[in-house]
Design a protein around this nucleic acid. Structure first.
Lengths: 117, 117
DNA sequence: GACATATATACCGAATGCCATATATTTATA
DNA sequence: TATAAATATATGGCATTCGGTATATATGTC
């Protein structure tokens, strides 16, 4: 994967995109409706920014029935992954990232919720 | 210092700004004419981008006679410093950063050249 | 003072990014 | 087939960013 540094930083320079990436770093995998709920943004808004992240190769997606699950791309270059991890460590617990995580935790009927049979 | 993550990433999303920051991380302190020479860009171009970095608090400047020296801001938050260091480690040796460093090394009459009496 | 060097800012048109809204697509179910 | 839910894309307008060029400012020297 060939990810130009300026492209990575441009991707992270938008609030919605950064908040989605942080959520994905924390949670591993989330569907669009979960990201929409967590950030309190409109669905097309979130979807468009996820598409940008996907086109850059920063996230990967997977469809399961009605839902499309996004995750940080597993083939991300090491340096980019380290930049993301340092960012996560730096912003964790601060608004709006903390409230996003709280919103997600209290979301009712999450599709990817703990699979208890 | 209060540096919003998206502001840091926006600053690094431009080629000229990222190249300048990388050079400053490597060299510690450089004047505008050195950054101009290293990147092969026009002087107003470099100066304007340095001004943006300064307004964000990412770099600090110091005037010495005719020259203005820039350095990565010493009061940068830890997480931001770590992001910069990981970026430097990731891009070092790759174009255009490697050629910038080479251009700087071969620049004649550098004002901040080794101070041998 | 006149002049040269280094740096900063102003101006302008082109390009890009952003958001909100509306609509299309995909999948599942009745 | 009809309908609903989840997601994606299209459209239009506004704001920001960008790079190039011209010009202004600051400092030092003669």
């Amino acid at each position: 994967m060939n990810l130009k540094p300026t492209d990575l930083f441009a991707a992270l320079s938008n609030d919605t995109r950064l908040r989605c990436v942080v959520l994905l770093l924390e949670q591993g995998e989330l569907c669009v409706c979960e990201l929409t709920h967590a950030t309190g943004s409109a669905q097309p808004h979130v979807s468009r920014h996820l598409a940008q992240l996907r086109e850059l190769g920063l996230v990967a997606d997977r469809r399961a029935g009605l839902w499309v699950y996004y995750r940080v791309h597993p083939a991300l270059p090491d340096w980019a992954r380290r930049v993301l991890n340092e960012t996560l460590a730096g912003v964790r617990g601060q608004a709006p990232f903390s409230t996003d995580a709280a919103n997600l935790a209290s979301m009712p009927g999450r599709p990817s919720a703990p699979r208890c049979a």
